[in-house]
């Protein structure tokens, strides 16, 4: 464990807790893409298949349970909660899951480290996580209203993967056999997807104006 990875995990943790807290307190999911949240639940499900088979550390297991629990809770709130579901904008959140899931699945079947079920699922979860934010970014551009918490949520989500890139660089230089080029490529693609959001986020923060994404 290094400081970059710990900072990355904490940033990721805060991002999902900010979202869960927002939905739980104001009982609204306005501006939140259910599609993205469902994709994240799928990311964690396919990535943490080793939850009960490989014990890494207490921290690792606890964090996996938190991420699984929070992502499924958020999906449950938006789908099932009698008040929250009313604020879900299903007419605008129309990104098709299979446009994202299928290419990632095909890619994972073609490019992976080992052709085993768990390894292909793990690779699939990496590719999926890289593009899972797309429905949310599309929704933000469509609705154009980005309330603070949603802006913070997307920002923290992008920041966590950027911190992970620093962690991969650090581990590459400190651990001789640390080679995870698939992880690195997926992580860089993921962070680049946030790049334009970051640009507009900082612009709005610097000029102290409401965050607006170009149509």
């Amino acid at each position: 464990m290094n400081i970059f990875r710990l900072a990355g995990d904490m940033t990721h943790l805060v991002s999902v807790l900010v979202l869960l807290l927002k939905i739980h307190t104001i009982k609204s999911c306005a501006g939140i893409s259910l599609k993205t949240q469902e994709l994240y639940a799928l990311v964690f499900t396919t990535r943490y298949l080793d939850l009960f088979t490989d014990y890494i550390s207490l921290y690792n297991t606890v964090m996996k349970l938190i991420f699984l629990g929070s992502s499924f809770s958020i999906v449950w709130y938006i789908r099932r909660h009698k008040i929250v579901r009313r604020s879900y904008d299903k007419d605008q959140d129309t990104f098709r899951h299979y446009f994202i899931v299928l290419p990632c699945l095909v890619l994972a079947l073609l490019i992976h480290h080992k052709f085993t079920f768990k390894e292909v699922m793990w690779t699939f979860s990496l590719y999926l996580e890289a593009v899972a934010i797309l429905p949310q970014l599309v929704l933000l551009q469509r609705t154009r209203n980005i309330d603070n918490l949603t802006g913070q949520y997307v920002f923290l989500l992008g920041a966590y993967r950027a911190l992970y890139i620093l962690n991969w660089i650090y581990r590459h230089y400190t651990e001789p056999h640390y080679v995870h080029w698939i992880t690195w490529i997926a992580g860089i693609v993921q962070t680049l997807l946030y790049a334009d959001f970051f640009y507009y986020y900082f612009q709005s923060w610097k000029n102290n104006v409401k965050l607006q994404l170009p149509a």
């Binding site: 990875r5 962690n167 056999h177 640390y178």
Partner: peptide, 10 residues
């Protein structure tokens, strides 16, 4: 092989 059998990152 380069890929550690266990994925120790989240």
């Amino acid at each position: 092989d380069g890929e550690s059998a266990k994925h120790d990152e989240l």
